[in-house]
Design a protein around this nucleic acid. Structure first.
Lengths: 192, 192, 192, 192
DNA sequence: TATGAATGAGCGTTCATTCAT
DNA sequence: TATGAATGAACGCTCATTCAT
């Protein structure tokens, strides 16, 4: 019972903070509002987290972990790499579309001074799956011989920009547009 | 005299806000600190800007305008497009490297809820030069037939991610790395 | 316990604001001073009231209600109306003399733009007892047939002016002066 | 030329302050707004008045003087006193109706702590004409033998309350209502 | 563990006033 | 005399955090 309740409250707090920050930003998301939205007392938050900053950082790690994990959930290692990459690329876009709040939070966080409070090792750990995924393909000469860090930045950076375009509602993306986006990335990174 | 002073104070305020936000984020950059850094009284800021938000938004427009403008300052329209694009792509990276504070501010702003307070038309206006530059190349069949908005997002998103990698100090980028990055992008977007 | 504390703090805040405003006016009664005088933290006031204006308005309603209520507390409905009215008229003066801060606050409020933020219905409700008291006497032909609103204004307006004269210390009013004041009013409003 | 300009500016400042205070109260009437409304520079106000408070007080004296003066402008000393008093009483109401801003300002001022910054002698001087007017009638046994100060308070207090009722728009007063109001006052104060 | 009233430092902003021109 | 940019103390208010219950 206790564990269930614990889980529920912590979860509710995370969810509330996510909702508020994705909509209003870090400031304009007061703890009192988080408490209200999570249906707990303000003081209760401090039983689970030392401070607001710690809560935000914990939320980041949690969401990032989940996001990356989801990208590989349906990865079929038996398929040819190009197909796996296509799946991966489109999965990023689909995942963000299904969870815009999570996406906005992550982008906001990683473009703010908050990001520098996360130890480099932790960030490396979080990115590891993507890193490994692409590095292996460089190694097996499927992908261009680019330093993996650049490769990861290129792939995810371009994908994120496209996601933002789509989420902004400024541009209605069709499935053939998505296919085009995939090819644009693929033709850039594949070994010639 | 009046104009000179005006220019000085407004400029000093802009500069101070830029410095603080790029380092500490929006909500850890109090107006009192801005005033101190700009060497003006707190109240003076409000002669030039209605509110903190307005100051931040004005700073965004100003910096974005300048940033885009700088990308084309040394563009040579007589050269072949590939070369012009290479110049453009590397210019983005060089520009950001020379002005990291400006880059951090712009990224932070455009990944925060602030961005949605800027009218769409204004954003379109700011991006117009890049948009035109790439659209023309699509039209003349140099670039892949991708909706220009996607194209712009792809190019700038990948470049920005690489810039962030570089600025983070996590990865020392050589000039051949930059060349590689350019080719990765180019091979993605060029007409096959 | 909670209720007692609540009552205490809210009451202390009301009392502090009353004291300050009656002495220094609305805009020379900063919230920080109210907090100090009420012996609470500045922020605490905002648990009980949304804003300074709301606090001031709540105080007005509260004091006005109490003031009117007190006027009829010792009213004896069995006595002839003239005697009841005499009691009522003198009671206004006595009440204000006993609670000058309350009187000053009420007069200041109702002669300021604040008064127009109170809904008309609320003001009607507050004045209702006086209104009813006099209207009935008009109906039974004890008082002159004057529109009740004018009657109320006349009676209370003249009384308030006399109270101000007395409170100003400019004129030492004897009990025969008060008697005279009552007769002056009575002879004006009674049915001839 | 100089005097004309002086007159114009001082007058414009008075007028602007009157307009603002009557509408928004003492606070919410910043000097910068006064300057704007008077079409002068903020600093200019300080050539004519030492401070905001001094300006407000000067405005009070000025308006009160004018108001009282106007009450007797059309007084015909040859007429019987009852008729003269009727004229005076109605004149108060008419005057306020024609100059609501002036009326609101005067009431606001004299019910605020500002009033106690005006020397008693000055207030006495301002009220003198009314005082004399009524005292004489007491002396000649036309009016009840009430201490003149009480008499003045009674008459003007009741009139002001009726004016407020009328200006509030809450009650549409007909000329017969005004007549009734006059008689109510007259029957109260006349010698029986 | 959970509460939420209470805190008070610190925020964004205002505005009476000054002073160099 | 007139200006209005500049000042900075002081305002109303917020909100991360604490602690008695």
């Amino acid at each position: 019972m206790k564990n269930v309740k614990d889980f529920d409250k912590k979860e509710a707090i995370f969810q509330a903070m996510l909702e508020l920050i994705s909509k209003h930003g870090f400031h304009s998301s007061p703890m009192s509002e988080v408490a209200k939205q999570a249906d707990v007392a303000a003081g209760t938050i401090y039983h689970y987290f030392k401070s607001k900053d710690e809560l935000i950082c914990a939320l980041y790690v949690r969401l990032k972990e989940k996001y990356i994990e989801n990208l590989f959930l349906t990865d079929d290692q038996n398929k040819p790499f190009k197909e796996r990459f296509r799946h991966f690329y489109l999965q990023m876009i689909i995942e963000a579309q299904k969870n815009p709040k999570e996406f906005y939070f992550l982008e906001q966080f990683s473009n703010s001074p908050f990001i520098s409070t996360i130890p480099k090792a932790e960030i490396t750990r979080l990115d590891q799956p993507v890193y490994d995924f692409l590095r292996k393909a460089v190694f097996t000469q499927i992908l261009r011989d680019i330093p993996p860090k650049i490769l990861v930045a290129f792939v995810m950076g371009s994908a994120n920009a496209i996601i933002k375009l789509q989420l902004s509602g400024e541009f209605q993306m069709t499935s053939s547009d998505l296919e085009l986006a995939f090819f644009t990335c693929w033709d850039g990174i594949k070994k010639i």
